[in-house]
Design a protein around this nucleic acid. Structure first.
Lengths: 214, 214
DNA sequence: GTCTATAATTAGATAGAC
DNA sequence: GTCTATCTAATTATAGAC
């Protein structure tokens, strides 16, 4: 009926309508994730998000209850992508598990810098959004990571990093290069998403966090 | 005359006037640095900054040409504080120099998290502000750091980190814990500015970047 | 579901009295 | 230098025709 209905016609009307809905909803999230990552929650405007999605601004309030609701949807989209990449290595030696997590973090930061950008923006001050982020998404994900670290420390071959600091040292060292990629490009003329940079980055962190690793 | 004129009366009128001016200008920067750090450039409002400084919003445009001008003044204030803390160790062994820089970075991130917060906000997307930051303040400060790193690598005892990555790995690992202190407090119940945490943080980074260090 | 129009609020900046 | 009042533009969200 309108210019935003995409291809793939031959289908039940109801299904078609649902499909169209989801597609704009998804496009809005795609656009929001970039804008929120670039400017933070307050700095990003719903108009800019709608424009990037090729939609009109009021459509955001049709598909989402509020700007904050859209923000939460983008977080959940990004975290589900994140979870797909994170390896499940229960049973493997602790150091192999932790090394695999390091590599996955570095890789994800390169292909999807937006998640870390949004989190870094959000965590600079207390807010209801940060509390929501921590309590519903971060705490249960961080727990297992620290437990694996404890095991690595017990087994030996871990850098002398206290468990309360591992999370932020690891996220900082793995995420900042890509979260702040525009700065890295200007300062050093590098492209942080290049495969060789990603590999060197991951190797460096594995060597630093797991020093006696082969 | 008004409720915002501070104490300290017995002085020359001219001197008093200059003092008052500089005091408000400084208070505005003090306030701006907190607001910009918490919300980013777009997210911070001049009204909130003025309120925090105990002034009225139009006074910002009296003491500064624009919001951007105020932002630049806060950067320069923060960087001058930073420079006071950074050690000048020319002549010392490269590894001692680099270890001292690591410790200074960690310490500064703890006592003045605002600089890293602002930079992290700003560097998530290209902008004239980021270019100004990189070209007038970051490049010449980063250069010597990389040169010291090269020397450490040459001497031996450095982690296998390519020179183009050292900067962001080091800043990320040293700054994020305090830049995102509200998150660290919620997640782990720690206070990242505590002296023991700062010391443990610095020790960990020295051990990781300079593995064969005593 | 989409679109135009608009309400209600807030933004940065300026004018002018004091 | 300070303060009140205000301008212009931009913000999120809603109403209602289609």
């Amino acid at each position: 009926m309108s210019l935003s209905t995409p291809a793939a016609a031959t289908e039940v009307p109801a299904g078609q309508r649902d499909r169209a809905t989801h597609e704009l909803r998804d496009r809005l999230i795609d656009a929001a994730l970039v804008e929120f990552a670039a400017s933070g929650f307050d700095g990003a405007s719903t108009r800019a998000i709608a424009r990037r999605a090729g939609a009109h601004q009021p459509q955001i309030n049709y598909h989402f209850a509020s700007k904050e609701d859209l923000w939460k949807a983008t977080i959940e989209r990004l975290l589900s992508e994140f979870d797909e990449l994170i390896p499940l290595l229960a049973g493997a030696p602790p150091r192999d598990q932790f090394a695999a997590v390091i590599r996955a973090l570095v890789e994800f930061a390169a292909i999807r810098p937006e998640l870390n950008r949004i989190m870094i923006h959000e965590a600079t001050s207390s807010s209801d959004r940060l509390e929501w982020l921590v309590e519903t998404h971060l705490r249960w994900r961080a727990g297992p990571l620290l437990e694996v670290w404890d095991e690595v420390v017990a087994v030996g071959g871990a850098a002398p990093v206290p468990r309360e600091l591992v999370y932020h040292l690891l996220i900082g060292a793995s995420a900042l290069l890509n979260a702040n990629a525009p700065e890295a490009r200007m300062l050093f003329g590098i492209e942080p998403t290049d495969a060789c940079i990603v590999a060197a980055h991951a190797d460096a962190l594995v060597a630093m966090f797991l020093p006696t690793h082969p």
